[in-house]
Simulated assay, not measured.
Amino acid sequence: MRVISLCPSNTEIMEYLGLTDLLVGVDDFSDWPECVKSLPQLGPDLSIDLDMVEELKPDLVLASLSVPGMEKNVEGLIQRNIPHIILNPQSLADIENDLIATANALNMPERGKEAASQFCKRLDDIKQKGSKAAHKPKLYWEWWPKPVFTPGSINWLTEVSEAAGAENVFKDVELASVQTDWDDVKSRNPDFLCIAWVGVRKQKIKKDLITNRPGWNELDAVRNDRILILEEELYCRPSPRLLDGLEKLYGLIHD
């Protein structure tokens, strides 16, 4: 089987299934595991070069709708009659199901069941620890600073927060992604600021960009130096790597 992945989360699902060796091309942003960087790169996930995709003669393309704008790729695949499946994970259960769906599409159903089982067990283990936490800190997640975007209730980071024995301060907003402002964040007074800007490496985010915001020196999280600059690749991509991020988060928020 010759497989192409059009976004990082799909590429990571292939690795979790132990099938990375089937990949013959990936989008420009797929960077894990390291070996995929040597594969043909087919453009950014919102502007895939479908001519290149066609030239690689894939048996299956893993398309996605996890980011607005990806519909264009799917329309192009349909027009060219390129075999594909579409993943659109919004929750941890969706990721579990995508492991099964991807393996089924590759005619390896047992591989999918096994991977999904391991995913569930690992998630349950950390949930057990999180449920025993004496204190459930309030977390503010920041995906983007200008304008401010944060995950709402219909988002895997709300689930990740709860599994880690914490609470997303925007879980009351019934959206996947919430555009808000710094005054609203300040009024919710979170215990931790969890900064993971989409597409930005953590090394490029300086803490003073956060602490210098008007009035934010009054936040408990700032006063107590509870500002977590996190790896966006462990929190912003709907893939099994969210469990790596979850385990790391648990260790950071529970002293």
Rank of each mutant, 00 (worst) to 15 (best):
R2N: 14
V3A: 12
L6R: 07
T11A: 06
T11H: 06
E12F: 06
L19F: 07
D27E: 10
F29H: 13
E34N: 05
C35S: 15
C35V: 15
V36H: 07
K37M: 09
K37V: 11
S38N: 10
D45C: 14
S47G: 05
I48K: 10
D49R: 12
K57R: 15
D59M: 07
D59C: 04
P68Y: 10
V74R: 00
L77Y: 08
I78C: 02
H84N: 11
I86E: 11
P89R: 11
Q90H: 05
D94K: 01
D94L: 00
I95L: 03
E96M: 02
I100Q: 12
I100G: 03
T102G: 06
T102E: 09
T102K: 03
N104I: 02
N104C: 10
A105D: 07
L106E: 01
M108V: 01
M108K: 15
E114S: 00
A116P: 00
F119V: 02
R122Q: 10
R122S: 11
D124G: 09
I126L: 09
I126E: 04
Q128K: 14
G130A: 07
K132A: 14
A134S: 14
H135V: 13
K136F: 13
P137Y: 11
L139K: 07
W141L: 06
E142Q: 09
P147E: 14
P147Y: 14
F149P: 00
W156L: 11
W156T: 02
W156F: 14
W156I: 07
L157W: 00
A163R: 04
A164Q: 06
N168D: 08
F170H: 01
F170C: 09
K171T: 13
A176M: 09
S177V: 10
V178T: 01
T180K: 03
T180I: 08
W182N: 12
S187Y: 10
F192Y: 15
A196M: 06
A196R: 00
W197R: 15
V198E: 02
G199N: 04
R201T: 00
K204R: 15
K207M: 14
K207Y: 11
D208Y: 14
T211W: 12
G215I: 03
E218H: 08
D225I: 05
L228I: 15
Y235N: 06
R241G: 09
E247L: 05
I253D: 06
H254V: 01
D255Y: 03
